[in-house]
Design a protein around this nucleic acid. Sequence first.
DNA 1: CGTGGCTCCTGTTAGC
DNA 2: TGCTAACAGGAGCCAC
Length: 271
Amino acid sequence: MPELPEVEVTRRSFRDAIVGARVQSVRMGKPLRWPLGVEPQALAGRVVQEVRRRGKYLLVDLDAGMLLLHLGMSGSLRFAPEQGAAGVHDHFDMQTDHGMLRLHDPRRFGAVVHVTGEEDPLAHKLLDGLGMEPLDPASFRLERFAAGLQASRTPIKQLLLGGKLVVGVGNIYASEVLFLARIDPQLPAREVGPRKVRRLFDGIREVLALAVAQGGTTLRDFSSADGMPGHFQLQAKVYGRDGQPCVGCGRPIRMLRQGQRSTYFCAHCQK
DNA sequence: CGTGGCTCCTGTTAGC
DNA sequence: TGCTAACAGGAGCCAC
C-alpha cells in the first residue's frame, strides 16, 4: 500500500495531533517484522516530541528514545481520540492522552521498533544505507543521482526500487516514472544517457510531490491517520495495464519480472 | 563489495 | 460455485 507519498501524507495527518501527547499504555498484537525491543509498559509516561520521516520509515521522537515505524506492504496507521476494540490485524496500539495510535497490518511486514536514539545500533542498521530524499532539494541532487546511476550495472528499475540511491520510489511509481521519462526499465543504470537522467530526476520529484500534495493514494483504498481518503487518483499509464494499449502509441503494454516484482512498460515508447 | 534470489504473512483475484 | 495458485504497493538477509 504505502509508497513515499502515502507515508508522508500519513505523517502529516497525525503529527500535530500527537506531538505533546503522553503515552499511557501500549498493546502489541501478533509479532511484526521485529520485536518491539522494549517491554510495552516501559513506554508509559514518555512524551511525543516530533514525528519525522526517513524514506518509508516514520520516526516518532519521544522525550527519551524513539520509535521506528514501517508500514511494510499492507500497513496503515490511524490516530484518533477514540478507537474501537482491536481487530485481528491491529498489532500495535499506543494509547496517549491525546488519543490512540494504531497500526493495522494484515501481512505484518511492517514494524514498530523502539531504539534509544539516532545512535542506537539498530537505528544505524535500518537508516544508514538509505538514499537521497526525493522531496528534499538539499538531499536530492542531480549530480549525485547521475553519479549513482553511472556507478551501477543494475537495470534502472531495480536500482530505483532498491532505495540505496533514492528512497521512496516503490514498485508502482518506478514503472510510472520510467514511462514518463521514456526509459527502458531493463536498461543498465550506467547506460542511461544524460538527457534521460535529467528526465528521470525531474519525473521522480514531480510525481512524488504531486501525489503528496493531493493527499496520497495510488491505486486502491488509502486513508491517512485521520481517516481522510487521498484525492490523488494516479491513473496509472502503465502499471497493471498488461496487454492494454499504451496511451502514447497504442501498442500493448508489456509486463515482465525483475527481481520478483512486476514491471510494466511500453517497449516502443521506452528505449 | 555489488548483485540477485529468498523470505516473512495474509488477503484478494484469476483461472480452471 | 468452489478450490487452487498466483500475486500483492517492502526490504532485510544471505549466498555467490
